[in-house]
Design a protein around this nucleic acid. Structure first.
Lengths: 208, 208
DNA sequence: ATTATCTATAGATCTATAGATAATGC
DNA sequence: ATTATCTATAGATCTATAGATAATGC
């Protein structure tokens, strides 16, 4: 035993973080033990401490890696170009809705969402990721996109209000279909709800 | 020592449940210990077991007591009467929004929301309260109210879609201002955001 | 020499129980 | 007799460390 030969080598560091995301998102940070984690990885507890200083260090590394979230991708959107290409602001919003659904539905994002929701207020104390700040960042990025859309459409609505009205239902539907769901998520129902939400939202947006 | 004289008697059962809501909402169920709980109540651990069979029994009793939530109050609303009294559907929705803010802002409701959000998917397994079912109940109650309003206003929108559009931002704002907040909540900002949300929502509702 | 594992264990903490003790209510 | 507490403790589990061992890379 002791150190395994190269052929059996696995990236234990990686495996620890993956298993930690699994366990922490299921049972919560306090609810998961180093023992369970070692078991899931397939090593002894002491081997975990070779890779990380402590249980908290594993959570920190995990959150650090999950990083600033995917809302960054919104910055890359050239709103006028895409709206023109899709021939309309409504189609543009539908695309955004659908894109978010696919992104959120990945197993990893589901686990991240559960962890963030579950540990929520406690995470800020760690100083790695502040969920409030994450939300506020995602919000202002979406507001930039909607602001440009509003300008293009010559809509009279306020960008901040539109952001609340657009994001709120999306987040609620995400929680309903992905975070709270027990079995495998019903993506068809999720997509349908998101589409209907965009239709409704567009009524308020487009009204002169 | 042993049993305290009547004059010092406190309702330990009550104190345990109150302290449990405190601790569970702060550190999560797994993160809170019977030792902390006993300490908070001011008795020995063994005294806790006189009142409850186990740690889980305390959580069960707590959830049982929190019961079906406050969404039940929506059933009592006579929509046509209140709309008539307030002279308009928009004022009616503003009142609903404001009422929810005051209700959600109570310390107890804040703790309940944190607990529900934090333990979220794990609670269903206990079989006392299923958060998904709670949400779905609250949803259909709100849908009844909005459906009646839609009929009164002769709005062409679908009641289910309107419910998503109305509740989504409210829940998001609640999470932002009350659940995630660290210090004391800024109720003024919360109310302002809710008012603006109702204004925006009304655009979509009232458009013919 | 360094890296990654193991065995073994320390020491803290946790849930829960046994049995003693004193107040209460009949 | 019943109820509500206490002291004391069992036994499980948890985080973390010490020290041995074997593979790797120089």
């Amino acid at each position: 035993m002791a150190r395994p030969p190269k052929t059996d080598a696995k990236d234990t560091h990686r495996l620890i973080l993956d298993a930690a995301l699994d366990l922490f998102s299921q049972g919560g940070y306090a609810g998961a033990s180093m023992r369970q984690l070692a078991r899931a990885v397939g090593v002894r507890e002491s081997a975990l401490y070779h890779h990380f200083e402590s249980k908290e260090a594993i959570l920190r590394a995990l959150l650090d890696e999950l990083g600033p979230g995917q809302s960054r991708q919104l910055d890359a959107i050239d709103v006028p170009a895409v709206v023109k290409q899709l021939k309309g602001g409504k189609a543009f919003l539908k695309l955004i809705g659908r894109t978010l659904v696919e992104l959120w539905a990945t197993p990893k994002e589901q686990k991240i969402a559960r962890l963030m929701m579950g540990e929520g207020p406690r995470l800020a104390a760690l100083g790695v990721i502040d969920p409030r700040q994450e939300i506020s960042l995602a919000r202002s990025r979406m507001q930039r996109v909607l602001g440009e859309l509003i300008r293009l459409e010559k809509s009279p609505v306020d960008a901040a209000d539109a952001t609340t009205a657009f994001m709120g239902p999306l987040i609620m539907l995400r929680a309903l279909h992905l975070v709270m769901a027990s079995g495998p998520p019903d993506l068809g129902a999720f997509r349908r709800d998101v589409d209907r939400h965009v239709d409704f939202f567009w009524r308020a947006m487009s009204k002169t």
